[in-house]
Amino acid sequence: MGETVGETVGETPSDALSRLRALCLALPEATEKLSHGEPTWFVRKVFVTYAGRHHDDRVAFWCAVPPGVQEALMGSDPERFFRPPYVGGRGWLGVYLDVPEIDWDEIAELVAEAYRTVAPKRLVAQLDAARAGRPS
């Protein structure tokens, strides 16, 4: 079975963390710090945190999402999306990274949306301008 664009089969947790890190740190003024023993990405506030088997035997990440997104994605694919502990009650989404095929294009969209959810408006505008090819 060959790899298609945006999908990876049999990715190791280390590979998944490296790809997630690259997506997060590509965003304007994003920084990484350890929080509760896990890599966590901030833009003033947390927008994504890695969950490398700290809370259960699954590798995942948790991200901020706009209202309604958590329920919609969990309902559409409960094998890939879940309500994470601690922050799930505030609408955050859990995304498993130990599934057979990871759609990295979808992960990139979720990371960008998480960023937009918590970043200052000035940085969101900068991100949107850069993605549209306009000077910020």
Rank of each mutant, 00 (worst) to 15 (best):
E3M: 14
E3Y: 06
T4C: 14
V5W: 01
G6K: 07
G6Q: 06
E7Y: 15
T8N: 01
V9E: 14
G10I: 13
G10T: 11
E11F: 02
E11G: 05
E11W: 01
T12Q: 11
P13T: 09
S14R: 15
S14D: 15
A16Q: 07
R19K: 15
R19M: 06
R19C: 05
L20R: 05
L20F: 01
R21G: 05
C24Y: 06
L25S: 10
L25K: 07
L27K: 09
L27P: 07
P28W: 09
E29V: 11
E29L: 13
A30M: 05
A30Y: 04
A30W: 00
T31P: 07
T31W: 05
T31V: 14
K33I: 03
K33W: 06
L34N: 08
S35L: 06
H36N: 12
H36L: 13
H36E: 08
G37E: 09
G37K: 09
P39A: 02
W41T: 11
F42S: 02
R44P: 00
R44Q: 12
R44F: 03
K45V: 01
V46N: 09
F47N: 07
T49D: 01
T49K: 06
T49F: 02
T49R: 14
Y50L: 13
Y50P: 07
A51I: 10
A51W: 13
G52R: 00
G52A: 06
R53D: 02
H54R: 15
H55R: 06
D57A: 10
A60N: 08
F61G: 04
V65T: 06
V65H: 00
P66I: 01
V69C: 03
Q70K: 08
L73N: 11
L73G: 10
L73F: 12
G75P: 09
S76G: 02
S76T: 00
D77V: 01
R80I: 12
F81I: 00
R83H: 02
R83V: 06
R83G: 08
P84G: 11
V87I: 09
V87R: 01
G88I: 04
G88H: 04
R90K: 11
W92V: 13
Y96L: 14
L97W: 04
L97N: 03
D98A: 07
D98C: 08
D98L: 11
D98P: 10
V99H: 03
V99P: 02
V99E: 05
P100S: 03
P100F: 01
E101W: 03
I102Q: 14
E106M: 11
E106K: 12
E109D: 14
L110M: 09
L110H: 03
A112R: 15
E113Y: 00
E113V: 05
A114L: 02
R116W: 00
R116Q: 05
A119Y: 03
P120R: 09
K121A: 15
K121Y: 05
R122F: 01
R122E: 10
Q126V: 11
L127T: 13
D128K: 14
A129G: 13
R131W: 10
A132Y: 06
A132L: 08
A132M: 07
A132C: 08
G133E: 12
G133I: 08
S136F: 02
